[in-house]
Computed example of a mutant assay.
Amino acid sequence: MKTATIAQLKKELQFRSEDELLQLCLRLARFKKENKELLTYLLFEADHEAGYIESVKAEVDEQFSIINTNSYFYIKKSVRKILRTLKKFIRYSGNKETEIELLLYFCQKLKDFQPSIQRNITLMNLYERQLNYIEKKIKALHEDLQYDFGLLLDELKN
């Protein structure tokens, strides 16, 4: 089966009734957890971005608290999983300020994590990559936000 393009899907959806669209959305949500999560964000949390950010931060806190600290192998696996989950939540939002705020929070949690990531090259590289990524993203924002986020970024770099 060949997958249709976004333009083709959009064109076809314009000809569907409201009831048919509702049924299509519900059927989509039934099949994949990510579809359900995105629909939940769009319907309930898109209007309350600050609350969404706080709920994602709480999720990150919870995931950091359950990391197995017996070896750096488990720490690396867990940190990568947290970052993957965080990127998924960022993708749902699509808001640049939200993305930067959540990544800065992740980096802060990683920096404060015990045992220290300083003793593991892989974790330090991951941390540095995220800081560089954040720095690039900050440049695309409004000047006031650039300054505010820049201060937070400088704290993490030191």
Rank of each mutant, 00 (worst) to 15 (best):
I138G: 09
R129A: 07
F73L: 11
R119E: 07
Y52C: 04
C107L: 06
K139C: 08
I53L: 13
L102M: 00
E20K: 04
A46C: 07
L21G: 02
K10W: 07
L156N: 11
L151N: 06
L21E: 08
N35W: 14
E135N: 12
K76W: 02
R91D: 14
R16V: 06
L126W: 02
K88I: 06
R129W: 09
I82R: 01
T40N: 07
E12V: 03
T5W: 12
N132H: 09
A29H: 02
L123E: 09
L39N: 01
Y92T: 00
D154S: 12
Q130H: 07
I134N: 03
L145E: 14
V60Y: 09
G94S: 02
D154C: 13
M124G: 03
L102G: 00
E45N: 08
L110N: 06
I6P: 08
L43T: 05
R119Q: 11
I90K: 00
A58W: 05
F89R: 15
N35I: 04
R119N: 07
D112E: 15
R16P: 00
N158E: 15
Q114K: 07
K57Q: 15
A7T: 11
F64I: 08
K137M: 13
K77L: 15
D154L: 15
Y72W: 08
V56L: 02
L153N: 05
K88N: 04
Q63A: 10
R129F: 10
N125L: 14
L43S: 08
A140M: 13
N68Q: 06
R129E: 14
I121A: 11
L43Q: 06
K87W: 10
L153I: 01
E135A: 15
K36R: 14
K11A: 14
K10H: 10
S17I: 01
G150E: 10
A58L: 14
K77E: 15
C25P: 01
I82M: 02
L126R: 00
E12R: 12
N35K: 01
V56C: 01
K76G: 05
F89H: 13
I121C: 04
H48C: 04
I134P: 04
E37S: 11
C107H: 01
L123F: 04
L152Q: 15
E45R: 14
Q146G: 02
E20S: 03
L123C: 02
L156P: 03
R80A: 05
R16Y: 04
E101A: 09
A4P: 09
L42D: 11
A140N: 12
Y92F: 15
L83D: 08
L22E: 01
L86A: 00
N95R: 00
D19T: 13
L152H: 14
F15Y: 13
M124F: 06
D19P: 12
Q146T: 06
P115Y: 01
D47Q: 11
L86I: 01
E34N: 13
I53Q: 12
D144F: 13
H48N: 13
V56Y: 11
Y147W: 13
V79G: 00
L86E: 00
Q14Y: 11
K96Q: 15
A58C: 08
Y127A: 06
E18H: 07
E62I: 07
I75V: 13
N120S: 11
R30P: 09
F15T: 08
K96S: 14
E12Q: 11
E54H: 10
A4T: 05
K76F: 03
V60D: 14
Q118W: 07
E62H: 09
L110G: 02
I117G: 00
E128W: 06
E97S: 13
E128M: 12
E128Y: 08
I66E: 03
A7S: 10
